[in-house]
Amino acid sequence: MFSLRLALKSIFNEKWMSLLSMFSIGVMLFILIAVAIVVYNVEKLTARLPERLTVMAILKEGATAEEVKAAQAAIKAEPAVKSVTFVSKEKALEELKKSFKKDDFILKGFGENPLFDSFDVKIKSEGADGVRQLIQRIKSIRAVDDVEYGESLMDSLYALKSGLRALGISIGIVFLCSVTFICYATVKILFYRHREEIEVYKLLGATRWFVRAPFFLEGTIIGILGGVVGSGILMAFYQYFLRRLIADMPMFAFMSIPVQFLYMLPVCGMLLGLGGSVLALGRLKY
């Protein structure tokens, strides 16, 4: 209790330095969590990407009814396949006409239906490799001529995802080290400023733990408060930026901030603050 009182008093007495440290930690933790949010949302978006992909298995012209039936059963038997719907070339033309609306005169140039019978295949969530393997298996079915799906979109999104993940980890490490260093430097400065006081404590019989405890607490408190500042910035970012962005540009509607991130920042600040203090006092002789 006495150590906590000493720590709070010291933070208050050195308020400008403490505030500077807290805000630096807050901003760094916010940047860290902002990167985490981007990574999280891209992960979330790509996790359900295969479900949104329309896989079209085009059937060979002249495939018999038995072959088509066998192909449908074979595709349906795939564990990653959610549903298989047969789309006749007549229905496909109809759909195409609908999508062209008033411009359907374009299709009048064709004497006969240029489309093929096909299967509309819906798949469950699978990784990019899983999807590719599935497509290969569908392609190998006798009645299937070719398979079309958003390959290039999927590839670029998956490349973006792994790039962002690597960037996120690198930024994360740099910022975690920076926050620890701020706590380390703050505690070390505070320790040197209290050197005379510590000398008296020692002469009066204070143990190592008694001398160290207030500094551990100071680092921890500065870390927690830095985390709270970071959470505040995050809330402001959500309220004044992200919400407006989503309202104005619905294409970003998939973006969300998990509420746990708000609690995570002070906890993260606490751990880094304590870690910084332990490092700062670890090798000091007194």
Partner: peptide
């Protein structure tokens, strides 16, 4: 030892 010194100082 170093841990006993504070106790003796008391």
């Amino acid at each position: 030892n170093s841990t006993s010194i504070p106790l003796l100082r008391r």
